[in-house]
């Protein structure tokens, strides 16, 4: 049996929605270099709907595949619905992940939340914290 499902390998080999949105309405970055996975999500939002999403990931196969799958799952969805996305749903959509890899999929859920929170903050006129809020790179 292979380490990963066909679905994981497909999303890993051909990640969807890779890249950057320069004028994003919300950006979230989670994870840290210490544990080995970092995910950054960029959202474009119109009328409370996610019209575009892009990601960048430093991480293992399961981190890249979960980022890719998560972006597909929220694209075109209302913000409130995207906020409900769980890592379990992402993992299930990938036909499962090895137990010790579940923590990598948690990052996808967290990255999306963090990007939406950034968007909400901007909406309220608060300064964007953007990136780094959850990032601790203590070895530098």
């Amino acid at each position: 049996m292979a380490l990963y499902s066909e679905k994981v390998m497909d999303h890993f080999r051909n990640p969807r929605n890779v890249g950057v949105i320069e004028d994003a309405d919300g950006v979230g970055e989670v994870g840290n270099a210490k544990c080995g996975d970092i995910m950054k999500m960029y959202l474009k939002i119109e009328d409370e709907t996610i019209t575009d999403v892009k990601f960048e990931t430093f991480g293992c196969g399961s981190a890249i595949a979960s980022s890719s799958m998560a972006t597909e799952m929220i694209k075109g969805k209302p913000v409130a619905e995207a906020m409900q996305l769980t890592n379990k749903a992402v993992a299930e959509a990938l036909d499962g992940l090895p137990d010790y890899k579940m923590h990598c999929s948690v990052l996808a859920e967290e990255a999306i939340r963090s990007a939406i929170e950034d968007y909400e903050r901007k909406k309220r006129g608060e300064p964007s914290l953007t990136v780094k809020e959850n990032v601790e790179s203590e070895d530098n």
Partner: peptide, 15 residues
């Protein structure tokens, strides 16, 4: 090409 760390390094945000 799609690593957020690499972006920070190449943009000078991190040494």
């Amino acid at each position: 090409g799609f690593s957020p760390i690499w972006r920070d390094l190449t943009s000078g945000k991190k040494p």
